[in-house]
Amino acid sequence: MDDGETAPGRRGLGSGTGPATPVELDGSAGEGGGQILRTALSLSLLTGRPFRISRIRANRDRPGLRPQHLAAVGAAARLGDATVEGAGVGSSTLTFRPGPFAPGDLAIDIGTAGSTSLVLHTLYLPIALRADRAVRLSLTGGTFNPKAPSFPFLDRTWRHYLSAIGLDLALAMPSAGFYPQGGGLLEAWIEPTRGLPRGLVAVQRGRLVRISGVAGACKLDRGRVADRMRSRAATRLDEAGLDAGIPVEIDLADWPGPAPGAAIALTAEFDGEAAPASFVGLGERGKPAEVVAEEAVAELLAFLDAPGSGAVDPHSADQLLLPLALAEGRSVFTVGAVTEHLRTNARTIAAFLDRPIAVQEPEDGPGRVIVG
């Protein structure tokens, strides 16, 4: 197969090195965070197209590349035998030129409490669509992060969506990692797909049938922390006036890990098309356990009460765009709140792929996303 030719049955996937002229990206555009870089890395590995990104995270308190971004760049470079320029902490410009794709097992230590989930988001789709065997990733860093998906969200919500569109992976958290120490371990086993992902149609949320969850602590007295989080969450959910008969079941967990931390994850489960929607409250030094629980409950209730009842939660919406942009057939889903992350990811994907993505924001209902 010649360079640039699309593999049979795999829309938009290159076979090795792509065109010499890089895709030009402005890393400060839209949401302006690391998402632009992560999506670009994934698409570069998938299509063989090089890219150059400037003004990386220019609007952040600490602009430029951080260790978790460098971990994603380094891992992508290893998978794609890529040539990289500008890969340093604080760098505002990076050029990435992929070579022949050769996926294999990887062990990556971020070296900080940086998000293991965001590194996984960068790598899973190129591996799933281009590997010829299952690949194991071992990622060391943060597994509970205030500005990134935490492990319970990955396991209960993200993995459900991937399974629905034909992408199979297993996840485990042998060790929990909290800010600022990190040291957690996220393991993923990614199975190669046959062909492309399936399209997704999720326009109706369905009836709420259950709220489940887990309240956990690491190197803390579970009775003083996890029990209190669970108790306050159950009380707040009861006060919220949920429909009679909706069960609330929150487990307790003692997570292994190198440093103290606590979290509670609450998951709303529905009948019909919608996947479970998960929301996480994170503990920190000096923050009462009850406040942690109330934050998770407030986010869950805001989703349940959002006008128009979008089927997809706002955290999942932008994460679904990339696999659906490569999927067979048309995808349509509704979302209660259209975020800047969603808009930014749509623009980044459009820089690499000729695949229509429409993000509609009506005034009197949920947002609607149409891919294809």
Score class of each variant (00 low, 15 high):
residue 222 R to Q: 14
residue 242 L to G: 08
residue 232 R to S: 04
residue 247 P to E: 03
residue 241 G to E: 08
residue 250 I to H: 00
residue 211 I to K: 10
residue 215 A to M: 11
residue 244 A to D: 12
residue 254 D to S: 15
residue 257 G to I: 02
residue 238 D to M: 11
residue 241 G to L: 06
residue 228 R to A: 00
residue 214 V to A: 06
residue 251 D to M: 03
residue 209 V to A: 14
residue 213 G to P: 14
residue 251 D to G: 13
residue 236 R to C: 06
residue 218 C to F: 07
residue 209 V to F: 03
residue 229 M to R: 08
residue 244 A to W: 06
residue 247 P to Y: 08
residue 231 S to P: 10
residue 250 I to M: 01
residue 218 C to N: 05
residue 215 A to D: 00
residue 252 L to N: 07
residue 238 D to I: 08
residue 256 P to R: 08
residue 251 D to V: 02
residue 243 D to F: 01
residue 213 G to L: 13
residue 209 V to G: 03
residue 251 D to A: 15
residue 250 I to S: 01
residue 213 G to H: 13
residue 237 L to Q: 08
residue 253 A to K: 06
residue 245 G to E: 13
residue 218 C to L: 11
residue 214 V to I: 15
residue 211 I to A: 00
residue 224 R to F: 08
residue 235 T to V: 13
residue 210 R to V: 05
residue 230 R to K: 13
residue 238 D to F: 02
residue 224 R to N: 06
residue 238 D to P: 10
residue 236 R to S: 14
residue 232 R to A: 15
residue 241 G to R: 06
residue 219 K to S: 12
residue 218 C to P: 07
residue 223 G to N: 10
residue 244 A to C: 05
residue 235 T to G: 04
residue 225 V to M: 03
residue 236 R to Q: 13
residue 225 V to N: 01
residue 236 R to I: 09
residue 249 E to K: 12
residue 227 D to V: 01
residue 231 S to G: 11
residue 252 L to E: 01
residue 236 R to F: 01
residue 252 L to Q: 09
residue 219 K to C: 10
residue 209 V to D: 12
residue 217 A to K: 05
residue 237 L to R: 09
residue 224 R to Q: 13
residue 234 A to L: 04
residue 237 L to Y: 02
residue 210 R to H: 14
residue 235 T to W: 05
residue 257 G to Y: 06
residue 239 E to P: 10
residue 255 W to A: 14
residue 254 D to Y: 11
residue 232 R to Y: 11
residue 242 L to H: 00
residue 212 S to C: 10
residue 242 L to Y: 09
residue 209 V to L: 14
residue 227 D to Y: 10
residue 231 S to C: 07
residue 220 L to N: 00
residue 248 V to R: 07
residue 225 V to F: 00
residue 252 L to W: 12
residue 247 P to F: 08
